[in-house]
Nucleic acid binder design. Sequence first.
DNA 1: CGAGTTTGACCAGCGC
DNA 2: GCGCTGGTCAAACTCG
Length: 354
Amino acid sequence: MESSPWVDTNLNLNLNPLSNHRDEISVVQKREFEGGFAGFEGKVSVKQEVCFFFFFLFVIENKQTGVLMEKLNRMSNENKKLTEMLTVLCENYKNLQKEYMDLKSRNPPPENNDPLINTTTSRKRKSSEDYNNNMIGFNNSQNECSSSDEESCKKPKENNIRPSVSRVYLRTSTVSSSNSAGLIVKDGYQWRKYGQKVTRDNPSPRAYFKCSFAPTCPVKKKVQRSAEDPSVLVATYEGEHNHPQPSKPELSMSPGSVSGLVPVSSSSSSMKSTGPSTTNTTATIALDTIKPGLFDHHHDDLRKWAQEIDQAPAIEQILVQQMASSLTRDPNFTAALAAAISGRFVDQSRTEKW
DNA sequence: CGAGTTTGACCAGCGC
DNA sequence: GCGCTGGTCAAACTCG
């Protein structure tokens, strides 16, 4: 994305009478001004001192508010752009999905040629087949278990406890890496690898991970490269985390790792469930690797802004926000305020001199 | 030295 | 029951 333009959101109060307002002040006032300031060191009264103090306080506050307003406006501009991007993305996705559904309904393939969809042809482990077949599509309802399939859904072996399963397809930038480093999916959680197996239908090994952030967390993850497209990683998540996410999903582009993952859906099923249909409702999506720098400046700005906001006390934040909003809402107010302050300043210096 | 990874062995489910 | 397969365990190994 292009770098966001810096929006000038200064309030332009021009409160410094010695610089900006100097041209607007009449010659007499100007002389008075300079004369007043010339004798600033020696003949300033207490009243004038207080006035100067509040004036400079206001100037400083206004400067801080201007910086915050500048950031605020910049953020809202970026937010607008991101919203537009998201809208376009959603529309594109809808169109693609529609096209895919049309194609699928017109010529149902005898064999799934989609490189993003596992095609298990094993006569065994039927549950896996069904599971994989149910990965197609995005709009499978959560309760797709039909009445005829309810028996299979209520298999006593499963004890009716079906960990939620979600599958994420990720496109990696490094295809050649065949070691385990190529099976690392950074999703913000901490995983401990407890096994690796070469499966029958896929030459690339499948890695088994357990969530290691919490010892009692039952979530497991399987990561394997797609047999059809080795650049696509298939991450299968089973269960639900019983703890908060330790960190945000990383979008870094470290070699061998994968970014841009989006768990698009979840289901309530088990890999081992059998029957022609299960309650699987896992959608699939292949995401191209997010281009480096796409959100870089957004992240930097957000980070910086968040740091600055965090460093400021809460009351100050509220005050600054209220001040900023009230000031920006009414441009007449800013102009009037500026005029009043500068005018008052001029009047005061004139009356003090006289 | 501790945490994480590797890897061969073991176990369980499924079809024949 | 047997063989195949996926999933898990745990000792050995690696790394910081």
